[in-house]
Design a protein around this nucleic acid. Sequence first.
DNA 1: CTTGACTTTTCGGCTTACCTAAAATATACT
DNA 2: AGTATATTTTAGGTAAGCCGAAAAGTCAAG
Lengths: 220, 220
Amino acid sequence: MLSSNTEDYLKAIYELLEDSGRVTTSALAERLTVAPASVTEMVQKLARMQPALVDYERHRGVALTEAGRKIALEVIRHHRLIELYLAEALGYGWHEVHAEAERLEHVISEEFEDKIAAVLGQPAHDPHGDPIPTREGEVAEPCRRALSQVTAGETVRVARVRDEDPAFLTHLTELGLVLRAPLRVTRAPEGGPLSVEVAGSTRELERAITDHVFVEAVGV
Amino acid sequence: MLSSNTEDYLKAIYELLEDSGRVTTSALAERLTVAPASVTEMVQKLARMQPALVDYERHRGVALTEAGRKIALEVIRHHRLIELYLAEALGYGWHEVHAEAERLEHVISEEFEDKIAAVLGQPAHDPHGDPIPTREGEVAEPCRRALSQVTAGETVRVARVRDEDPAFLTHLTELGLVLRAPLRVTRAPEGGPLSVEVAGSTRELERAITDHVFVEAVGV
DNA sequence: CTTGACTTTTCGGCTTACCTAAAATATACT
DNA sequence: AGTATATTTTAGGTAAGCCGAAAAGTCAAG
């Protein structure tokens, strides 16, 4: 059996790779709020395991092996299913689910996983729009089109939000930028703040927001 | 914040006290499946904490302080609420709930606790008939009348089962001895096996069973 | 009241995961 | 290319919990 800790490292490595393409010691240290030295140590251990869970060469960053990726995806499946379950079955808001799921993900059984997946109807996405991996370790591509890249005149829909910070998510909710909300971009000046029509009113949205909200074409 | 470990020790101390009256180092070691030496060490630590969670003098056994009891009851509340939630909301059998709850109890938030308690309608008993402590740390007396002590001719109802062993619980289910099942004792020879009429058929039940099934008068 | 059996505690050691400080390596700039 | 800056790794240490073996303490039976 793997420790919660090992699972957290693998998940963090997967997620860093997913949304920044590279996994450095310091990035991992920051995400896990531990000292860089601790990361080096732990990563070396993961690389020495049988089977190895990461590929690692000093000063060269880290990557998941197939075995490591499999485990990461299983933990992520737990996390996202739990988030959705908390939202759907227990009335949690999308800003509250992350912290709770973060702890539950390490302790639920496969049976629990199966039962909530069944209750939820084998869902494909969590409350933030992230794809839920299958039991077999397959994941759909997450939506990658940032709102900041939409051109004026287009009508789209919120498909995913990157950033689990409760304050940020609460703020988005106040703006009407909730999952699946339709919106129309009215002005999109070069590099400047977008004007967006959402939930009946028009807002100016800064980069801090539009870079973290991903959208898909309406009707998909 | 207390470690899961600390919580497990406090819970075990509470439960041993509850159903055998005395808490020895070796009993605790057996229940927690650790070496006696480890128990001694840990108990000393609990006694040194600020505030102290247990009263302890060498060779004299251990007892909970008010602070320790409070924590034990909170963990037990978590455990029993989770057990009931798994049974009611996710269709777990009463033989499956214990193992899952054992892990979940340490990681859920107060919010989670409140939400499932609300969904369940502030329940008073878990799937084994054990009373669920309140948020404030009060517990009802568990039912203490063993089936083995019922006299012939009496009609009673299963109110509680002591023993979380899945095989034992499955066996009880097969016998029709489920929670709240009404039953009638037809013969109760001195110290011998009871004859019991339950779910339409009559069975002979050995001591191993009748000592672990507790009953209450029908109509309560 | 002494002895032998059992229980409990102490002792020295292990593992996991963390830390800080110092050393090694990499990168970036002139 | 050579040096300053930044990142990463090594080294030495700490805290929780666990262990087995040996010492200490308890208690019942003779």
